[in-house]
């Protein structure tokens, strides 16, 4: 029985991946290939743009030198509001490199300095992932109703809960996994091509690239970021699925319209913006060091996250109800 259910689930997920293969499967692959293509062109042209090569070889040591320089900004000298910028030469740490010893630095000092660059690549995938998932969730139940294939899907021994949960899991689990693999592939390819570039410029690829990547921290952070994103985005995703199940014409309007109306109404009549504040926690936004805008959980976040997950269940139940009884346009 359990085997039959898992077989059904796999079939339902495969069906989604087939129907939305362009956005769910091809888009991340195209993104990987585009990034790799750009870097490959850079590698192939490396010999012809020696000026870039020279500047890179100068920039890399000078960045390390910058570790010995601190900048202090003092805004109050003797009670006078003044700004003073001062450069201080701090004593060089033992073992720190000098311009003449590129590639001889200690890895523990530099490990992780390339992580932000790789995280930037990952963030690009995250950004596109969220757009793709939102679009998928708005379309998936609505398109079945629009082309009337819903009658075929409903003629199969699959419950509405199974259908809705399979679609939800495609957005919250399966597609992020595909995009994570693609992101990882892109990051590895970028590192390899970067190493190839440096090797062609007769520099030490290991010291300048591999030693500067803290892979474990990076991957764990990115995986944790996906989990965090799933937990915070679940209510938004479930709401989009609900809109897809219930919309007569435009799922987007059903998803966005009532929320905007409530936010505006609250602001106009009550002068508050509680709903907007709550909603903003469940939408991707930029907050500096977080993953897709979501920072790690603090104790104060947990009640809101639990409320969000309860809302997720309610929205999914609503989508199931609509799928069961109001599927015709």
């Amino acid at each position: 029985m359990a085997e039959g259910r898992s077989q059904t689930y796999i079939t339902l997920v495969l069906r989604e991946l087939q129907e939305y293969r362009t956005s769910l499967c091809w888009t991340p692959l195209v993104l990987v290939m585009t990034l790799c293509g750009v870097l490959l062109v850079a590698v192939l042209l490396a010999d012809h743009i020696s000026a870039i090569g020279e500047s890179v070889s100068q920039v890399l040591p000078s960045r390390d030198e910058a570790g010995n320089i601190s900048i202090r900004i003092d805004s109050s000298v003797d009670g006078e509001p003044a700004l003073e910028y001062r450069l201080e030469q701090t004593p060089a740490a033992p073992g720190n490199l000098n311009p003449g010893s590129v590639g001889q630095e200690q890895p523990e000092v530099l490990a992780g300095t390339l992580n932000p660059l790789l995280q930037g690549i990952h963030n690009l995938f995250l950004f596109i992932l969220i757009l793709v998932c939102a679009n998928y969730l708005l379309a998936t139940l609505f398109n079945d109703r629009r082309d009337r294939s819903v009658l075929f899907w409903k003629s199969m021994p699959v419950s509405e809960w199974e259908e809705v949960l399979a679609k939800f899991s495609v957005a919250i689990l399966v597609t992020p996994a595909l995009y994570f693999i693609a992101s990882l592939l892109a990051q590895v390819m970028c590192l390899l091509l970067g190493m190839l570039l440096l090797w062609r410029m007769e520099m030490d690829p290991y010291a300048l690239v591999l030693a500067r990547v803290d892979g474990a921290t990076l991957i764990l952070g990115q995986l944790g970021g996906f989990a965090l994103m799933a937990l915070w985005l679940a209510p938004s995703y479930a709401w989009l699925l609900f809109a897809s199940a219930g919309a007569r014409r435009s799922p987007f309007m059903l998803a966005a319209g009532p929320l905007l109306a409530f936010i505006l109404g609250e602001r106009i009549f009550l002068g508050t913006s509680h709903l907007a504040t709550v909603l903003s926690r469940h939408l991707p936004h930029y907050s500096g060091g977080g993953y897709a805008g979501f920072s790690w959980l603090g104790a104060a976040d947990i009640p809101q996250m639990i409320l969000g997950l309860l809302f997720t269940l309610a929205a999914l139940a609503g989508a199931v109800y609509l799928r069961r009884y109001y599927f015709e346009l």
């Binding site: 082309d147 009337r148 009658l151 075929f152 003629s155």
Partner: peptide
Amino acid sequence: FIADTAVLPRW
């Protein structure tokens, strides 16, 4: 069940 019109998914 076969419905009144073609309902097989066209894609």
